Simulated scan of single mutants.
Amino acid sequence: MPHAFRRLALSNLAAQASEQLALAAAPLLAVLALGAGAAETGWLQAAQTLPFLLLALPAGLLADRASRIRLMIGAEALRAVALLGILALAASGRLGLGGLAALGFLGAAGTVAQSVAAPALLPTLVPRAGLARANRWLELGRSLAFAAGPALGGALIGWLGAGPAYGAAIGLSLLSAGLLAGLPEPARGAAPRRHPGQELREGIGFVLSHPLLRPILATAVVFNTAWFVLQAGYVVHAVHHLGLSAAGVGVTLGLYGAGMVAGALAAPRLAACWSLGTLIAAGPLAASLAALLMLATLALPAPALAALALFLFGAGPILWTIHTTTLRQAVTPGAMLGRVSATVLTATFGARPLGAAIGALLAARYGVGACLLAAALGFVAQLAIILASPAARLRALPG
C-alpha cells in the first residue's frame, strides 16, 4: 500500500484506541469518583453519542469544502484538549458530572469529524483496485481498538487511577495528529460555493436516489435499530437468565470484538472466492443467524450460545462495513464523499437511540424476552432488504 495510506492507517489506529480508552474511562470515572448511578451514566453516554446526530452533516460539508487532512488533525487536537480538560478538572477536584458530559461531548465532536473525513480522504490516497484492502486495514484497526481499548481503560483506572488512562488517550490523539501532519493531499478543483443547505440536500439526495446506496442505508438503519434493541436487554438477560457473573458478561461482550478482528483478518481470503454481493450479504446473514441463536437462549439458557451469537455479530457485520464502504467510495463523486459519508453516519447513529428506546419500552412492559424477539425480527428484516436489492447481486465494483 502507498506510504501515505500506511500513515493514515497508523493514525486511524491511534485515534480509535484513544476514543475507546476515553469511552471506557468516562463511565468508570463517573461511578467510582463521582458516585453516579445508572441514570447518570446513561445521560453521560447520550452526551458522548449526541454529536454523531448533530454534527455529522456539518462535518461532511466541511470535509467536501476544506482540507480533509487539516480537518482530521483539528479533530484529534479537539479530542486531546477535551481529555486534557477532564484530567485537569479531576486533578483539581472540580470535576462534576456536568463537566464530564460537556467535555465528553466536545471530544466526541472530534471523533465525528475524523469518522467523516477519513473515508472521504481514502480514495485520494489509494488506487481504486486497493480500496477494499485499505478499508480492511482501517476496520482491523478499529476492531483491535474496540476489543482492547475498554479492557485497557478499565485496567488502567482500576490499577492506577484516571490520570494514566486519560494521559494515554491524550498521547494517542496527539500521535494520531502527528502522523497526519505533512501527509500529501491531492488538490481538488475549487467548487462553486452554494448555500450549505443546498449542498447537504445534494449529498442526502444522492444516497436516497442511488439504487445501490439506498438499500444499503436502509439495511444499516434497521440493523442498528435491532442491535440496540438487543443491547437494551442483553446484560439483564445474561445475568438473570443465563446465570453469568459480571466477569462472564464481560467475556461474552469481549467476543464481539474478537469476532470483528476475526472477520477483518478473514476478509482477503473470502474476497478471493466470493463475489462482492455475497460479501455484502454475509454481514446481514450472520447477524440474523446470531439473533436467532440469542433468541434460542430463552428456551436453552446456555452461555455458549450467547457467546457464539456475539462472536457472529462481530465477524459478519465487519465484512459488511469493509465492502459497503468500498462500494460507497467507488460510486460517489469525489467532491461529494464527505457529505455522503456524513449522511450514512447520521442515519445509522440516529437509529441507535431509537433502538435503545424501543428496547427499554419492551423490557419494561413485556420483559427481556420481548427485546430478544423484536431484535430477531429486525435482523431478519434487514437481511430481507439487502437480499432483495441489486447490491446483493454485484459480482464486482461497478464502473
Rank of each mutant, 00 (worst) to 15 (best):
G369H: 01
T252N: 02
G104H: 04
G85F: 06
A162W: 10
Y256H: 14
A309H: 02
A165W: 05
A232E: 00
A272P: 06
P184T: 05
A381D: 09
I73G: 05
R201A: 13
A145S: 08
S288L: 10
T278Q: 14
F313L: 15
S11F: 08
R193K: 11
G259S: 09
E202F: 02
A24Q: 02
F223L: 15
G378W: 02
A342Y: 11
R136P: 05
G154Y: 06
P186V: 12
A147M: 12
S11W: 07
G96D: 14
A63D: 09
A15C: 08
I358Q: 11
R339D: 08
A247I: 07
G93R: 04
G378M: 00
A388E: 03
A282I: 13
A66Y: 13
A26G: 05
F206E: 01
S18H: 11
V344A: 10
L97V: 04
V236S: 05
M260A: 15
A4Y: 03
L337V: 02
P2N: 02
W137Y: 13
Y166L: 15
D64L: 12
L156S: 03
I280E: 08
P268F: 02
I386W: 04
I322W: 03
S341I: 06
A238H: 03
I69Q: 14
A258T: 09
L305W: 00
W227H: 07
I216L: 15
V236C: 00
P211A: 08
L131K: 04
E202P: 01
R193W: 10
F311W: 11
A39D: 12
G338K: 12
A4D: 03
A4C: 04
L230D: 07
L383P: 10
A113T: 10
A287F: 14
L295F: 02
P27G: 01
A286M: 14
G314K: 03
L13R: 12
L95F: 04
P184Q: 05
A347T: 06
R188M: 05
W227A: 15
T219M: 15
L213P: 03
A220H: 11
